[in-house]
Amino acid sequence: NSLAEAKVLANRELDKYGVSDYYKNLINNAKTVEGVKALIDEILA
């Protein structure tokens, strides 16, 4: 998966839960796919 794909999928996942734009910005600023995954795990914990 590319970083861009990971960000799109992460933001879709956040949308399902009604997560605020603050967290979407964190996702969009992530530098690695692993970073995106770690943020998602933390946000949805």
Rank of each mutant, 00 (worst) to 15 (best):
V36S: 00
V8M: 15
S20R: 04
V19R: 05
V8E: 15
D21L: 05
K31D: 12
V33C: 03
N25R: 07
A4M: 09
D41A: 12
A10Y: 03
Y22R: 04
L39I: 13
G18W: 05
V36T: 01
N28A: 12
K24C: 03
Y22T: 05
K16F: 09
N28C: 06
K7M: 05
L14T: 02
V36F: 03
I27M: 03
R12Q: 15
D41L: 13
K7G: 01
D41W: 09
K37Y: 13
A38S: 10
S20K: 06
N25D: 15
T32K: 01
L26I: 07
V19Q: 08
T32L: 01
L26F: 05
S20G: 13
L3D: 01
K31S: 14
Y23G: 03
L26D: 03
K7T: 02
D15A: 09
I27N: 00
K24Q: 06
N29H: 09
A6G: 02
K16M: 07
I43R: 01
A4C: 08
N11Q: 15
E34I: 07
A38N: 06
V19M: 14
S20C: 12
T32C: 03
L44E: 03
A38M: 11
V8C: 12
A38Y: 09
N29F: 06
E5D: 12
Y22Q: 09
K31Q: 15
L9V: 15
I40F: 14
K16L: 07
E5F: 06
K37C: 06
S2V: 10
I43E: 00
E42G: 10
G35P: 00
L26Y: 04
A30C: 06
V8S: 14
L14G: 03
E34Y: 04
A10M: 02
N11L: 12
N28T: 08
T32N: 05
D41N: 13
G18Y: 06
D15Y: 04
K7Q: 09
V8L: 14
L14P: 00
L14H: 01
K16T: 06
I40Q: 06
L44V: 10
E13A: 10
E5W: 08
S2K: 13
E42S: 13
G35K: 13
L26V: 04
L9R: 15
E13P: 00
N1L: 14
Y22K: 09
N11T: 13
K7L: 06
A45L: 11
A4N: 07
I43L: 06
G35T: 14
E42Y: 13
Y23A: 06
V36Y: 01
G35A: 15
V19I: 14
A6S: 09
T32I: 01
N29D: 12
Y22L: 08
G18P: 05
V33Y: 04
V36L: 14
Y17G: 03
D15I: 06
Y23R: 02
K7R: 03
G18N: 10
V19P: 07
S20A: 11
K37H: 12
V36H: 00
D21K: 06
V19W: 09
I27V: 11
E34K: 07
K7C: 04
N28S: 08
N1C: 13
K24D: 02
S2W: 09
S2H: 10
V8T: 14
D21N: 08
L44P: 01
K7I: 11
I40L: 15
I43M: 05
A30M: 11
V36G: 00
I40K: 10
A4R: 09
S2G: 12
L39A: 04
K7Y: 01
N25T: 13
E5G: 07
V36A: 01
A10P: 01
S2Y: 08
L14S: 05
Y17F: 12
N11M: 10
N25Q: 11
A30I: 05
Y17Q: 06
I40E: 02
A30N: 02
D15L: 07
V36I: 13
E13D: 05
D21G: 07
S20M: 09
K16Y: 07
D41T: 14
L9C: 14
T32F: 02
A6T: 08
S2C: 04
N29C: 11
K37G: 04
S20T: 10
K37I: 11
K24L: 06
A30F: 02
R12S: 14
K24S: 06
K24E: 03
K37S: 05
V19G: 11
A10E: 01
A4V: 10
L3I: 04
D15P: 02
E34F: 04
L39W: 03
V36R: 00
V8W: 09
E34Q: 10
D21E: 12
A4P: 03
D15G: 06
N11C: 09
I43H: 02
D41H: 08
K31G: 08
I43K: 01
V8D: 15
T32Q: 02
K31E: 14
K24M: 05
L26Q: 06
K24A: 05
N28Y: 05
A38H: 08
A38L: 11
E13C: 15
A10S: 01
N28F: 06
V33N: 03
V8Q: 15
N11S: 11
K37P: 00
G18H: 12
N25C: 10
L39P: 00
R12Y: 13
N1T: 14
K31C: 06
N1I: 15
I40M: 15
A38W: 09
N28I: 08
K31Y: 05
D21T: 04
V33F: 04
L9P: 01
I27Q: 00
L39Y: 03
V8R: 14
A6Y: 09
Y17K: 07
Y23K: 02
E42I: 12
L9E: 15
G18L: 07
I40T: 08
E13K: 07
G35N: 10
N1V: 12
L44C: 03
E42A: 14
E13R: 04
Y17I: 11
G35R: 12
A45N: 13
L3R: 00
N29K: 10
N29Y: 04
R12A: 15
L3C: 02
S20Y: 04
A30S: 08
D15N: 05
K31R: 11
L44I: 11
V33S: 03
I43A: 10
L9T: 15
A4F: 08
V19L: 12
Y23D: 03
G35L: 14
D15V: 06
V19H: 05
S2R: 13
A30W: 00
A30Q: 09
K37A: 09
A6L: 14
L9A: 15
N28E: 13
A45M: 12
Y22W: 11
Y22P: 03
